[in-house]
């Protein structure tokens, strides 16, 4: 099964590399937003007491990572739905392979893509002067965290893709990602929010994940970062992979 999973993961990675137009937005938009945010809020950040980073640029690194990984993972699930729509899925299911490897392989590729995205984003931010206070461990923390977020979200959307068999339906679920992202502390610290918006950001797991990732950059290494930036997405990944596999068995059992 491991060999088959790796083969499917490889196929999925090659497929994504061959479609740079679908991969590019998940790199370009987060970096654009971050650059715009630095120009818009950079001055304000220096005037706000207790701002939790050296600069808005350092603050926005984690937001850019999670944004890019979320966009990328959604695109991966959309590719899975396209496979189902195009009939390639049926050929894979009919082939003599462990069926769960078809899904797990694709999810494994989302982990790799998420980790690579996180590494690229952090390298770009470092090139513009961001210092990773967590050192090499902090860098690895962000990279693995990016991979785990990719895995968790890809699992969820793969489940949607398998159940619906429609790339349009997967794209239709995209606003959910958008809402989770914007109603969190991905773009501004929670401590400056107030009212119901603050309450929503407090209970939104995206806030805690992004803050964990951010602390790898803004603080020396500690257990807290790992608990939130790795622990939460790992937990969600277990549930979402279960959901994807359950959706697979349901689809296979359908007449």
């Amino acid at each position: 099964m491991i060999r088959e999973t790796l083969a499917f993961a490889r196929r999925s990675l090659i497929g994504r590399l061959r479609q740079p137009e679908s991969l590019a937005p998940s790199f370009v938009f987060p970096l654009f937003f971050a650059a715009l945010g630095v120009s818009s809020f950079g001055k304000a950040a220096t005037r706000l007491p207790g701002f939790p980073a050296d600069s808005y640029l350092a603050f926005s690194a984690a937001g850019a990572v999670i944004q890019g990984v979320l966009f990328g993972a959604t695109a991966a699930a959309s590719d899975l739905a396209t496979d189902i729509e195009g009939g390639f899925w049926e050929r894979m299911v009919a082939s003599p392979v462990t069926r769960s490897s078809i899904v797990v392989g694709r999810l494994a590729s989302s982990f790799v893509v998420g980790a690579v995205q996180a590494a690229v984003f952090l390298a770009v931010f470092m090139a513009f002067g961001v210092r990773v206070h967590g050192g090499i461990g902090g860098f690895v923390g962000v990279v693995v965290g990016g991979g785990l977020i990719g895995l968790a979200v890809a699992g969820l959307f793969a489940g949607f893709a398998i159940r619906s068999g429609s790339s349009e339906a997967v794209q239709g679920a995209f606003p959910l990602v958008f809402v989770l992202l914007f109603l969190s502390s991905a773009f501004f610290p929670r401590q400056y929010m107030s009212g119901w918006y603050r309450h929503v950001a407090d209970v939104n797991p995206t806030s805690h994940v992004v803050e964990g990732l951010r602390q790898f950059v803004t603080r020396p290494l500690g257990t807290q970062q790992f608990a939130t930036a790795w622990g939460i997405p790992a937990g969600v990944a277990v549930v979402s992979i279960g959901f994807a596999l359950r959706s697979l068995h349901r689809r296979l059992a359908a007449p």
Binding site: F41, A44, A45, R47, L48, F178, V179, F182, L183, F187, F188, Y192, M193, S194, G195, Y197, R198, V200, A201
Partner: peptide, 17 residues
């Protein structure tokens, strides 16, 4: 509508400046 709510909530402190 979502954008108005999200931006107003997230960037309120910056706008207060």
């Amino acid at each position: 509508v979502f954008q108005a709510i999200a931006f107003s909530g997230a960037f309120a402190a910056a706008i207060h400046l």
